[in-house]
Amino acid sequence: MTTVSNLIAALMVGGLALWAQWARKSRAAEISLWVLILALSFLTLLVGVLLVVTSVSGAAASIVPGRLIRLETIGMLVAGVAGLGLCVPPLLKILGRSRGGKWSEPPVFLALWLFVMVLFTNNLVGILGFEQVTSLGARSLGEGARLSPTTVLGTELPFVIVAVCGVGLGVRRNLRQTLARLGYGNLSLRGLAAAALFVVAALALSPVADRVFTLLQPELSRRVGHLSTSLFGTGGMSPSQAVLFALLLGVGAALGEETLFRGAVQPVLGIPLTSVLFASMHLEYGPSVILIYLFLISAGLGLLRRHFNTTTSFTAHAAYNTLSVLIPYFLGSP
């Protein structure tokens, strides 16, 4: 069910992204996109207000913990207000009171709006409410079940759909132009060497990050460790099964995440904002210091994309994920 809902959400976002590309050359489409985003922002704010009323009345107290309600409420209110604020520059451009800049261009405007919506209404709520979310099972983090090929496909395929639609496949660009815009090209020897250096550095930094996590947040570290073992553990697998599982995680996750974050989003939002979004997507780590490590990983991949291409960052990401699974399996390290 989660896979189906992810695909439906991806198709909806992809449709908005294609609409935004069409709005670059159609004033009617630009105005209608602005009206829709304004309405959705207002609706988000209204939901936040209704959550305030619900919290005050205590109507949902027996269903959802108060802390989670408060986080959902704050997330909706902030996202709604920010979404309405983002609608101002395009409005001034539409009214002819401003020439408009980069931030009022329909695809960039939509990207910023989605960044705000996803960050505040889903990611930060899921991270800050990690304890309540996992205990309620309110979000499908997969606790108690190892990731399956279907789950990986259902998680990563939507990223690819959103990415290719976001850069205008079929509206603004053909397939070759789309791949070029996403940064896919030849992998040079220098790029391969840079990817290998990244993987070595990331793997060397990983146990340091884990150690800091354990020292600073021991209880959260235990819970996250249990969840991570459930999702990514290779216990009971044969060597061939472990290799296939590692490649599934490595190649599958890298393809979806690099295509979206480094390929489509980074040229618009830049490395810092892209890295914030990338780290916040990893709800399974909760409000932990590991998110800082993930931000640094994303920034490193972003530099590979900037100085080489997305093929290079994909290679590094896939190799890092694959080795992160195989090293503990074959060497017996935690």
Results as ranks from 00 to 15, higher is better:
Thr2Gln: 15
Met12His: 01
Ala17Trp: 03
Arg24Glu: 14
Arg24Cys: 03
Lys25Trp: 10
Ser26Thr: 06
Arg27Met: 06
Arg27Trp: 08
Arg27Ala: 15
Ala28Asp: 15
Leu33Lys: 03
Val35Asp: 07
Leu36Pro: 05
Leu36Met: 15
Ile37Ala: 14
Leu38Thr: 15
Phe42Asn: 09
Thr44Asn: 14
Leu46Trp: 12
Leu46Met: 11
Val49Tyr: 07
Val53Cys: 01
Thr54Gln: 15
Ala59Ser: 15
Ser62Tyr: 07
Val64Ile: 11
Pro65Lys: 03
Arg70Asp: 15
Arg70Val: 13
Glu72Val: 01
Thr73Val: 03
Ile74Asn: 01
Leu77Asn: 09
Val78Arg: 05
Ala79Tyr: 03
Gly83Asp: 14
Gly85Tyr: 04
Val88Met: 09
Pro89Asp: 02
Pro90Asp: 14
Lys93Tyr: 02
Arg97Lys: 11
Glu105Cys: 09
Glu105His: 05
Pro106Thr: 08
Leu110Thr: 02
Leu112Tyr: 14
Leu119Arg: 01
Thr121Phe: 07
Leu128Glu: 13
Gly129Glu: 10
Glu131Arg: 12
Val133Gln: 05
Val133His: 09
Val133Leu: 03
Val133Gly: 01
Leu136Tyr: 00
Leu136Arg: 08
Ser140Gly: 05
Leu141Gln: 12
Gly142Pro: 06
Glu143Pro: 05
Glu143Gln: 14
Arg146Asp: 09
Leu147Glu: 13
Leu147Thr: 13
Leu147Lys: 13
Thr150Ile: 12
Thr151Val: 13
Gly154Cys: 04
Val164His: 00
Gly168Met: 05
Gly168Asp: 09
Leu169Ala: 11
Leu169Gly: 02
Asn174Cys: 11
Arg176Tyr: 08
Tyr184His: 03
Gly185Arg: 12
Gly185Trp: 04
Gly185Thr: 09
Asn186Trp: 12
Asn186Tyr: 10
Arg190Leu: 12
Ala194Val: 01
Leu197Glu: 08
Val199Ala: 06
Val199Pro: 02
Ala201Leu: 14
Ser206Cys: 06
Val208His: 03
Gln217Arg: 07
Pro218Arg: 06
Glu219Cys: 07
Leu220Thr: 04
Arg222Glu: 15
Ser228Trp: 12
Leu231Asp: 09
Leu231Pro: 06
Gly233Lys: 06
Thr234Gly: 06
Gly235Asn: 12
Gly235Ser: 15
Gly236Tyr: 04
Gly236Ala: 08
Met237Lys: 10
Ser240Met: 15
Ala242Ser: 14
Phe245Met: 10
Leu248Arg: 03
Ala253His: 00
Glu257Leu: 01
Leu260Arg: 04
Arg262Val: 03
Gly263Arg: 00
Gln266Val: 06
Leu269Asn: 02
Pro272Ala: 13
Thr274Ile: 00
Thr274Lys: 02
Leu277Ser: 13
Ser280Arg: 00
Ser280Pro: 01
Glu284Leu: 08
Pro287Ser: 11
Val289Thr: 13
Val289Leu: 13
Ile290Glu: 09
Ile292Thr: 12
Leu294Phe: 03
Leu296Thr: 07
Leu296Gln: 00
His307Trp: 12
Phe308Glu: 14
Asn309Trp: 05
Thr310Trp: 05
Phe314Ser: 10
Asn321Gly: 06
Thr322Lys: 02
Ser324Trp: 00
Leu326Trp: 03
Ile327Gly: 00
Pro328Cys: 12
Phe330His: 10
Pro334Val: 14
